[in-house]
Design a protein around this nucleic acid. Structure first.
Lengths: 314, 314
DNA sequence: TTAATCATGCCAGTAGTTGTCATGTTTATT
DNA sequence: AATAAACATGACAACTACTGGCATGATTAA
């Protein structure tokens, strides 16, 4: 076996083992101890952060986290990684910020001049626009780790009524519209609630968890179940169709007729009514609500409220 | 110099040159032709897709796009790449889909069992929730390439009034809320308009462009300039503060008072009024608009319209 | 036909690698 | 204090791999 191949095998072996003696490596690969010493010198020269402890019970220790064997990427693949990183640009706090930086450096420095320009260009021609870089989410990594390590947390949380203390089990975290949300089981209320990670003021303590909860995927799909089904029936003008098609909640529900107008005829959850009402308010005469009465009422009540707030005087 | 190092130098040299003769490499590195032949055999064994053409004017040709020299990643860095790819999961059409897949495979296969589990786990504890995987954007890659290669396009576009033909110069593309948008200079209207990439029906033809336009970054920042400044003054209840703080357009404008209530006192662009009105509509009594009158009018008109659409009858 | 090119084999000289042995140093254990 | 276990390093001979040169062939364009 060639020296290069053997070196890589040893690289993988030692970076997995972290602490080892020369003898162990010699036995593992059937080579002499002298050669192991020589190899380790080579790896060290190659940049592997490894140090030796002298004396009895001594040995070598690899400092960095595990290394993967060297990987050959094509230029396009490297660009695709930059492209993916680009999509994270607008998030202010990310769990892997340092790693993302070091990957970027490693890749960028081994690109040739021409490809560097391509990457630079990419960043001036494509963007992922997300709002709200402004809100800090310093505890994101902490709650994510708690979720992954299956722990429960006591937290200070800023809610409508002020700062409260909560005892929760995080299910996971997801980003939406520039903000990080965390569904978590609230032990006091005995159900899963949705928290905003930026509103977690501090983590008081964490503890091991015994119980079993749904994972994030399962929670997502359970969210889509209808709790209080209600019949939604709306007539849409051409413009109404266009706008509803652009709305994530409605696009799948719209049926388009031949003349370009359309309608919505679907079963939705009653809880969504308050949310949906503002869309139909904005659409005004482009959307004629037929059912449900509740939705018409919500919209009329809100309109009345507005008119009483701003009485006519001009 | 060691053989391994020399091989990598040659790998970079030939994958940049794509087509070359053994003599060229021999001259470049001051080695014998015989050795070059041997090295190329080694590279070929290592998986470099390279083939030879016999005879006069023959030579070697490297098939794949350029290769980077091998890169050593730590496990955490690999995980961070998966994390970044995760954020792209909800986009249906991406310019680098194939590369993303091949990078994922290369990385995943060289991870150890434990790290594979970590990656799998990551995907069940974290998500980037974006709506609208449903809308196809098949022409995204094409318009992106046109933008990068500085070309003009004639396109069929689906606009309010039906399908129209447009002569444009794409500035770039950005994703927002699951949809891809393309600011582009419209040669007919002589100004930059915003198009939705999924509404581009087809590209008729492309042509070289001579003129100079802003790039995406510049366009973004110019978008923020105020064209028709107008004074916005709104009083907010505690709940009003909370909700405005969650809105990307307003969060920076809100001032919070000691008792938790707050106000907005800022200069905004008149064009935003229509957009902003629906937020204050939703807030109802939690937001008392003081200025401008125009905003109050918009909200009152809309409320009136709603009430006339749904006359009281219960 | 000739020149340019890849393909491959052989061989001797050179360069690099390995194992063994030797010697030191450091540190924990007895 | 002695001993054992570990790293550190040097010397050297045996071994292995690499290299360049030369030869031979095959293929192709001029």
């Amino acid at each position: 076996m060639s020296k290069a191949k053997r070196l890589l095998d040893i690289l993988v072996f030692v970076s997995a083992k972290k602490k080892f003696t020369a003898q162990e490596v010699a036995d593992e690969f059937n080579i002499s101890i002298r050669t192991v010493h020589r190899y380790i010198l080579d790896l060290s020269d190659m940049g592997l952060p490894i140090y030796a402890e002298q004396g009895r019970n001594g040995g070598y220790t690899v400092l960095s986290s595990r290394l993967l064997p060297p990987i050959l990427f094509t230029e396009d693949e490297a660009v695709s990684i930059f492209f993916a990183f680009q999509s994270l640009h607008y998030y202010r706090d990310l769990p892997f910020n340092t790693e993302i930086k070091s990957v970027s450096q490693k890749l960028y420095s081994s690109l040739q001049e021409e490809a560097k320009q391509k990457v630079d260009k990419l960043q001036s021609y494509i963007a992922f626009w997300n709002p709200k870089r402004a809100i800090e989410t310093p505890l994101l990594k902490a709650v994510l780790e708690a979720a992954i390590e299956n722990k429960n947390l006591h937290i200070h949380y800023e809610s409508k009524s002020g700062t409260t203390t909560k005892h929760i089990h995080p299910i996971g975290a997801y980003a939406h519209d520039g903000l990080w949300y965390m569904p978590a089981f609230d032990f006091t209320k005995q159900k899963i609630l949705l928290f905003r990670v930026d509103r977690i003021i501090s983590i008081i303590e964490s503890e091991e968890n015994q119980e079993v909860f749904v994972n994030l995927q399962e929670w997502f799909s359970s969210e889509y179940e209808l709790k209080q089904p209600i019949h939604l029936n709306v007539l849409l003008s051409r413009e109404g169709v266009r706008q509803c098609k652009s709305d994530p909640n409605l696009e799948d529900l719209v049926t388009i007729k031949e003349d370009g107008t359309g309608f919505i005829d679907a079963i939705i959850d009653k809880g969504e009514l308050n949310f949906i009402s503002s869309i139909f308010y904005r659409l005004g005469m482009h959307a004629q609500i037929v059912e449900p009465k509740e939705l018409i009422n919500i919209i009329r009540q809100q309109a009345k409220g507005i008119l009483s707030m701003y009485p006519e005087n001009d």
